[in-house]
């Protein structure tokens, strides 16, 4: 199957990536190769097999519902591009 310009634009949007018109052919070419490669899985016989999501047969560990973390907002926000009064600043979302 061939990956179309529309496919690239759709996938890029879902992944929140901007792909310029000029970049589309290169993405389409390489993704075509990758999809062609993983398409070989289709022929494999997998009837009766359970999907394996994880190597370990483990269940989620639970712990006491106790406060263990301390407030380090100022420390953590040093890595943010823009903050004011402890808030993260983003472009207006709600009109």
């Amino acid at each position: 199957m061939a990956i179309t310009r529309k496919d690239i634009e759709h996938i890029a949007h879902l992944a929140r990536l901007e792909v310029s018109d000029a970049e589309v052919p290169a993405y389409a070419d390489k993704l075509d190769k990758i999809i062609g490669f993983i398409d070989t899985l289709e022929q494999a016989e997998t009837a009766g097999l359970q999907p394996m999501a994880h190597p370990l047969q483990m269940s989620q560990r639970l712990r006491e519902d106790a406060v263990t973390a301390t407030d380090q907002r100022d420390h953590y926000q040093q890595n943010a591009a823009e903050t004011t009064d402890g808030l993260y600043i983003v472009p207006r979302v709600v009109e």
Binding site: I38, L41, E42, A44, T46, L49, Q50, P51, M52, A53
Partner: peptide
Amino acid sequence: AYYLKAQKIRQL
């Protein structure tokens, strides 16, 4: 077709 299939092959 891809993700679930690949997980089954992972089991295999």
